[in-house]
């Protein structure tokens, strides 16, 4: 670790980092060497953001996950680690797919794949009132958004946005199939103009819901077509872009 200790953070961007690595954030030339820019930023544009997988320590940034180190220049710069983990930790604002496990009074309990179950009020649906309850059964799938997610409290989800509209959230239909992929793949799929999604959409029409918790719900016209989509997406995890293009070419050729 001592050997890794002195690596500057810029040098490792795009490379694999391991838990325990210490990355040094270069100090300002006008500041003394011991004080970091992180501590008290003299100007707002030099503020540095610590994303997932990184933690501040005395020497600089401590890596807590293994994966690729990423950097974004916007707003002073942000560093984070892109990892391929499977375990989901709820984060406020994330859209996730939950499975209803219990109906307890006026809240539903949802399994979102995290360490704790999330709660969802029956009033947190579009158009729901005390009289007009949503029809939710145990075992149903719900696509919602986290409004409370921190390490000390039970996470809470809602199915409406701030203006009270559902905006795509709510109960997912009875048909279709749910499966899990790694969180890294979900982020790849949810990226704007994701190649995989664009290529998939050229095959045949289907519906898809992507949850940040690694769950994907897919429904195509037939069972066979749904199975194909499921298999392609599961395989995408282990395929390079080229292999994927070949696979899609083979599929669309038929």
């Amino acid at each position: 670790m001592a050997a890794r200790g002195g690596v500057a953070v810029e040098e490792r961007v795009g490379q694999v980092v391991l838990p325990g690595d210490v990355l040094v954030v270069p100090a300002h030339p006008d500041e003394d060497g011991e004080r970091l820019r992180l501590g008290a930023p003299p100007a707002p544009h030099t503020r540095l953001l610590c994303g997932p997988g990184l933690r501040r320590c005395d020497a600089g940034l401590l890596v807590t996950k293994c994966g690729l180190l990423r950097h974004r220049q916007a707003a002073g710069g942000a560093y984070w680690v892109d990892s391929q983990q499977k375990r989901y930790v709820p984060i406020k604002g994330d859209h996730a797919i939950g499975i209803v496990t219990a109906k307890a009074g006026d809240v539903f309990k949802l399994d979102v794949g995290g360490s704790e179950q999330a709660s969802l009020s029956y009033l947190a649906f579009e158009g729901a009132t005390k009289r007009n309850r949503p029809n939710v059964q145990v075992g149903d799938l719900i696509y919602g958004q986290f409004v409370v997610a921190n390490k000390d409290m039970e996470p809470e989800m809602v199915c409406v946005d701030s203006s009270g509209r559902s905006s795509g959230m709510g109960i997912i239909g009875q048909d279709g199939f749910l499966f899990k992929v790694s969180l890294g793949l979900i982020r790849k799929l949810l990226a704007p103009k994701s190649e995989i999604i664009q290529e998939l959409s050229q095959l045949y029409p289907f519906e898809m819901v992507l949850g940040m918790n690694g769950r994907i719900w897919v429904k195509a016209r037939t069972v066979q077509q749904t199975l194909i989509i499921v298999n392609i997406l599961e395989a995408c995890e282990y395929m390079t872009a080229e292999q994927r293009k070949q696979a899609f070419a083979k599929l669309s050729g038929n």
Partner: peptide
Amino acid sequence: MKPSPVSNCERRFLLRAIEEGKRLDG
């Protein structure tokens, strides 16, 4: 940690696929 439950749609889909003689992994 509790194992994640099986949702209704998974169950229905799997049984329907089995009826058609298909399995998830082909």
